[in-house]
């Protein structure tokens, strides 16, 4: 077997370089983070509500932004035909796909971690450590874990759909369609690919919490498996 092909680590570095060197991607991701700053400065709530909203504030917007980012990272490779170049350099395509999952999930993780810390700091400054449950660290870590897992799952769903559909229009429409239809019935509410992260992030006290978190994870894993199969298809143009 090929022994000199780049490993996933090198390919993650490649993907990060691509993000940094294209004009709008890095700016767009930074904008998503920066847009939270005014809200941090101006939002006024009571301590309990501020704690309750910590997960949705640090994860919800980022989750959807990272989902779209995941779609675009893959779709642009097919649109501009650079996917063929990647697969010529690394014929083991699963590695390229794995690197894209790691890159997008890692980017999302960095973004939501920074926001979680920032929101927590704002809360502590305003309502004190007790108001933000710093005396119950298990709850803080739990909240962070939910944010981190759902944001990564959202990114995985984006990369997976982008790899399966090979185009951003179809993938984004599919996710938008899911987001519009999923909440309509009780059965799919917060369990579909688009709304599973939303459910667990936005309704922290809901009885949907565990099943919704599981839903987000399962969709993420399903997207990864689907992408690893779909990436093997022919690149004929």
């Amino acid at each position: 077997m090929a022994t000199h092909q780049a490993g996933v680590g090198v390919l993650v570095r490649t993907e990060l370089f691509k993000v940094a060197s294209s004009r709008w991607q890095a700016t767009g991701l930074l904008a998503v983070v920066v847009l939270h700053v005014p809200l941090m400065l101006w939002s006024g709530q009571q301590a309990p509500a501020f704690w309750e909203g910590l997960r949705s504030r640090s994860g919800l917007f980022v989750a959807y932004a990272v989902m779209a980012f995941g779609v675009l990272v893959v779709a642009q490779e097919y649109r501009h035909r650079t996917a063929a170049l990647s697969f010529l350099a690394v014929p083991g395509r699963a590695r390229v796909t794995a690197a894209q999952f790691v890159t997008v999930a890692g980017t999302g993780l960095a973004m939501c971690s920074a926001l979680f810390l920032a929101w927590l700091a704002v809360g502590v400054a305003r309502y004190g450590g007790t108001g933000m449950h710093l005396d119950r660290p298990g709850q803080v870590v739990g909240a962070y874990a939910v944010v981190a897992v759902t944001v990564c799952a959202a990114g995985m769903i984006g990369v997976g759909l982008g790899t399966i559909l090979r185009g951003s229009t179809g993938a984004l429409l599919a996710l938008g369609g899911c987001a519009a239809v999923e909440p309509l019935t009780d059965l799919t509410r917060f369990h579909g690919p688009a709304t599973a992260p939303l459910g667990v992030l936005a309704w922290p006290t809901s009885e949907l919490e565990i099943s919704s978190l599981a839903g987000a994870l399962c969709w993420g894993v399903l997207a990864l498996v689907g992408a690893l199969i779909a990436v093997r298809r022919d690149i004929s143009s």
Partner: peptide, 12 residues
């Protein structure tokens, strides 16, 4: 391999 023109338009 040269398989036609492939590059991201926003990248130098």
């Amino acid at each position: 391999a040269v398989l036609g023109n492939a590059s991201h338009p926003g990248r130098t």
